[in-house]
Design a protein around this nucleic acid. Structure first.
Lengths: 361, 361
DNA sequence: TTGTATGCGTTATCAT
DNA sequence: ATGATAACGCATACAA
């Protein structure tokens, strides 16, 4: 008898990947409490119609406590047909732009009782669809895609396919950026924000503009550049083509672009970098070339990332409420599915700071 | 017949939470390929002993492709008895210290083919054990805890219990910080790093030291303060108690502490903030009080967070390879379990920059 | 209100 | 090498 019991236990435990005597199952709790599996289940999750007698309920809860029962989320996911996880895809979590968005998504995810699965592409767009596949396998409830899209049909098609697959498997999707992929999107008003910035700078007396335009196929960068350029044209102060430097969408890209612009470009009063980290890099480049900001040249960015707070001189920018954008995207993804892709528009606010003081032309 | 089939399908699909016709199952793939479920499983995961005839294998793969089959990770987790997810608990993902660590953990997780689940406590220590419970339910393979511990028995006990529970359920744990909780830990040499910094500053001619010490119950802060103080004592230049300001472990804490220190404290040559974000806040406070850095007072920090790169004046600090710390912690957690808690020691490197130029006493 | 039985999608055991 | 089938832990339709 003793041997049999031991053998039975060992064969019972054999296939478990986790340590012996590990996870306590609901059946064990039920047995301990002297009720059926179903009753234990009902007592513990206390679902909609909580139809368990008080004393039984107590017994079950006590047994669960005693045995340190921890429900297996994977098993629940199978039985319920839905998981409790939310995916977030971005380029680089160490970039303050994305980490603020991630903070917002994390907040909203916690409110919705969802666990946040984070996927960092390290700026490699080909990894995006791969991460979507991973999240599809996990059967995540929703995916938030925060990386700016590029004008690259191949990558976008791969992404479209992967996302279609995900949605076909029952998940929902929200994008942050451009309404490109036929899904719910939080649209950031890049064009109008940059235009407003151009007008504000013009009003401050700036006339000779330079732009660090980011990669030419980067849609966000392109929108910001276009908005800036068109506003300047309307002001009768067109932007010279040589005054636009293409560069990477990163801090180092800004540094390089600014270096080229100051060395080879036309003289400028002020330089607009299409995002803040580039602007910060640009200021470093100016310093290294002995060009003083803002005395010799003004600098402006876009996004108002939190780390800007301690940059000197304080940087003029277009504030985007990044945490709120993350929250909005999450809520969008978690809302009841709509027939049409929904768009939530987020405006930017021009914030003028020391890096672009008023100047007489 | 037709009606029966339709009825069967609808009852089949009824309980699925996901959209109709959604997730394709392996059985469907097997049927499509004309093989058994077992064969399909073997063909697709191609496990250790891949014993499937080539042509059958092809048929299965083709069928899977055609049907857009996506394996259900939850079901796999159940069957295999182990999941493919890794948990990371930290205070605030928008803090560059943590986001760098997260980047490292993410890298290591991807190498190990694990999905990263991120939990942000928003500086509320009571949320830590709750997140551990969430990850326990998910049956995560391992948890990395990156938030610095505090000297608070209640919180630490709750955490210890939650982690014990998690490990009992088969997961492994790695800590970053102090070897406090009897688990594998990446130990950062706070004491010796701060001591080395003190000696370097002393060698630069500084004699009147101030410290922004962080919260008194914060172990990392305390270790750094102690290391700094002891080194100064050995140098025959003891730290006055009034020259130490307690404050929050954040940028704003540094700002407040510096304000108090400059206003009410003894005169100082140089101020050591126990972390970089505090040091950055301290520089802002100095600016706002009209105290020039480094001319009137030097400032030094700890960690060498990446955003320091664009702070002026460049900040002296103790560099900690944060990304590597994240990687090391992940590898530690994923390594074969040891009988004893393992410790990986990481040294800091003093980096002297403009904020603390040499000065004659 | 409680219990019984089935299914969720997959892996692994054991025959064949 | 392949196939039938029993787990895995839980939720729930259905019966009692």
């Amino acid at each position: 008898m003793v041997e049999d019991a031991a053998a039975a236990v060992s064969s019972d435990e054999r296939r478990r990947g986790r340590s012996p005597g590990g996870p306590v199952t609901l059946s064990q709790v039920a047995r301990e409490a002297g009720v059926s599996l179903a009753t234990a289940s009902r007592a513990i999750n206390g679902s909609a119609n909580r139809t368990v007698r008080a004393d039984l309920r107590e017994r079950v809860l006590a047994a669960a406590e005693r045995l340190r029962y921890s429900p297996d989320a994977n098993a629940q996911a199978m039985a319920r047909g839905r998981t409790t996880s939310l995916g977030l895809i971005l380029h680089d979590i160490a970039d303050p732009y994305f980490s603020s968005i991630a903070a917002g998504v994390g907040l909203a995810a916690e409110r919705a009782d969802l666990a946040l699965t984070l996927a960092s592409t390290q700026h490699d767009p080909t990894r995006e669809p791969r991460f979507v596949d991973v999240l599809t396998r996990q059967r995540a409830r929703a995916i938030i895609v925060a990386g700016g899209r590029r004008d690259d049909d191949e990558t976008n098609d791969a992404m479209r396919t992967a996302l279609a697959n995900f949605r076909h498997s029952g998940g929902s999707v929200a994008l942050i950026g451009q309404p490109l992929l036929d899904v719910d999107t939080v649209v950031i008003a890049n064009h109008s924000g940059a235009a407003a910035l151009a007008r504000a700078l013009h009003a401050h007396g700036y006339r000779r503009f330079g732009v660090l335009g980011g990669p030419t196929d980067h849609l966000t960068a392109r929108d910001r550049l276009t908005g800036f350029r068109e506003a300047l044209e309307e002001l009768g102060c067109p932007l010279a083509e040589e005054a636009v430097a293409s560069c990477a969408f990163t801090r180092d890209g800004g540094y390089d672009g600014m270096t080229r612009l100051l060395r080879d470009g036309p003289p400028v009063d002020v330089v607009f970098a299409v995002n803040d980290v580039m602007a910060v890099g640009a200021m470093a480049a100016a310093r290294d070339l002995g060009v003083r900001v803002p005395r010799d040249v003004g600098v402006a960015g876009f996004d108002d990332i939190v780390t800007l707070r301690d940059i000197t001189p304080a940087l003029t920018t277009v504030r985007v409420p990044l945490v709120d954008v993350g929250i909005a995207a999450t809520e969008l993804a978690l809302a009841a599915p709509a027939t049409e892709p929904r768009l939530v528009h987020v405006e930017g606010t021009v914030v003028l700071r020391e890096s672009t003081p008023p100047r007489r032309p």
